[in-house]
Amino acid sequence: MDDNKPKIMTFNTLILHTAALFLLPLQLIFSVFLLLRGHDEPGGGFIAGLVASGAFVLYLFAHGVASTREIMRVEPRDLLALGLLLGLAAMFPGMLNGEAFLTAQWWEFSLGDTQVKLSTVLIFDIGVYFAVLGTILTIVMSLTESEE
């Protein structure tokens, strides 16, 4: 009746170990790609944040919490706070222009051949990205740490 319990949370298979190492940067780049294109194509802060947290969670299972913390360099909680702050920061530029707060502001300019569109909306989406990333990593890392 009782299922077999997974004894340790670090799976020491060579393939996973190596794969996680290579997949992490790829997945992170992919998440940034999803984040930036999110306004026009499927993607955006929520999805990109989930992909990025997936990357770290995979790495965490392969290499353990301590090593994940090392490559992350920041506390996941700080990422969470950063996300919330960015979300809040996107509120104010509109007010400076005398519009209702959270009114989107756009700054467009061309960089060489490409048209670059910066906006408070992008800042907000980046905030969502970090908030989701921070939330999931806080949860998963506290759980794995409590296990050890």
Binding site: F46, L50, V132, T135, I136, I139, L143
Partner: peptide
């Protein structure tokens, strides 16, 4: 629904813990 999915995960994690 998109936000609901993510929030449901957050709430689930909270409930489970």
């Amino acid at each position: 629904i998109l936000t609901a999915i993510v929030i449901a995960f957050g709430v689930l994690a909270f409930a489970v813990v």
